[in-house]
Design a protein around this nucleic acid. Sequence first.
DNA 1: AAATTATGTCAATATGACTGACATAAATTC
DNA 2: GAATTTATGTCAGTCATATTGACATAATTT
Lengths: 175, 175
Amino acid sequence: MNGQQADEAVRTALSAEEEGIDFALIELLFFAYRDFTSDPDVILADYGFGRAHHRVLHFVNRRPGLTVAELLEVLRITKQSLARVLKQLIDAGHVVQVQGPRDRRQRELYPTAKGRALALALALPQSRRIRAALEEAGPADRAAIERFLKAMVDPDLRPQIDKRPRAGGGGREGK
Amino acid sequence: MNGQQADEAVRTALSAEEEGIDFALIELLFFAYRDFTSDPDVILADYGFGRAHHRVLHFVNRRPGLTVAELLEVLRITKQSLARVLKQLIDAGHVVQVQGPRDRRQRELYPTAKGRALALALALPQSRRIRAALEEAGPADRAAIERFLKAMVDPDLRPQIDKRPRAGGGGREGK
DNA sequence: AAATTATGTCAATATGACTGACATAAATTC
DNA sequence: GAATTTATGTCAGTCATATTGACATAATTT
């Protein structure tokens, strides 16, 4: 219930080690991401979906035709974790699977029109938040922010960032 | 297995709506945070702790003396979710509870020396990643990044960001 | 004295993740 | 052509983190 004097010593000793730690940005990243991800939750609840569904749908929409293996790499989860979520998205008609044209073992994933609509609806509030946050920022500021976030990603995983759908290929609707 | 023509139309139609969506920053935030949070996981595993423990320990360390209610507000979780994690941190000797001096119903939370050491060890790789990401950034860039992240937080929750321990008060070691 | 507040706790449940094992079909290698 | 590897799917069990709802206690406020 006391020990004020002894602690002061401990606190001082630790402060030296804490010097180099960038607590400011560590916390800002936490707070920013906390609220950034809170936006779509309300919409997802209407569909009985969670954040896992959001992540899957987002990347299927953004990289139509990506394979299950690619999706697992991007999300950094196991296939067992993906299984239920992906099945629910397929059953609900938001995502379709197509046998790979080159390698018929592969399953290419495509959003349906319904899936695209939901992906868009989920991205909208997040995009609005970003736009508002950049209100006062100039082009140079935006570039700096992008560079920083890109540099925060593991170097060996950075190729994932820019991967986009092969040009010319649209989505696929049905079976 | 086909439907290439029809889809093209759908894709074009949606592209118009997608115009305004800032997918670039949405994905950068996802990738940056994914890898940012992956750093401490290895250390946590040694202690049998998870990310929830990390978050609690971080804020107890950074805001020594904060109450249970304040912690719940910051983490945006329910007290039932906090209960087990907090109990484990207390049992393991990383956090101590002290009856509030003004309001004796409150429980002020403080890190022990052990807790501070662990909080620091967890912050270190994250701080290193941030430093590396800012390698090429100037002071103006850093300021822009901080402004952006701050602006991403819900306006009504922004006061949480700057809340820091009352000056003069150190940690508390034991009973 | 009554109401409210801060915290703790019990019980049940949901979500999202994990490991390990095994099955199938298709591609690759020998 | 047979054997191996690869991509995917699936079953079973488990764990971590979160939820809601209900109730208990002690201390503060009204």
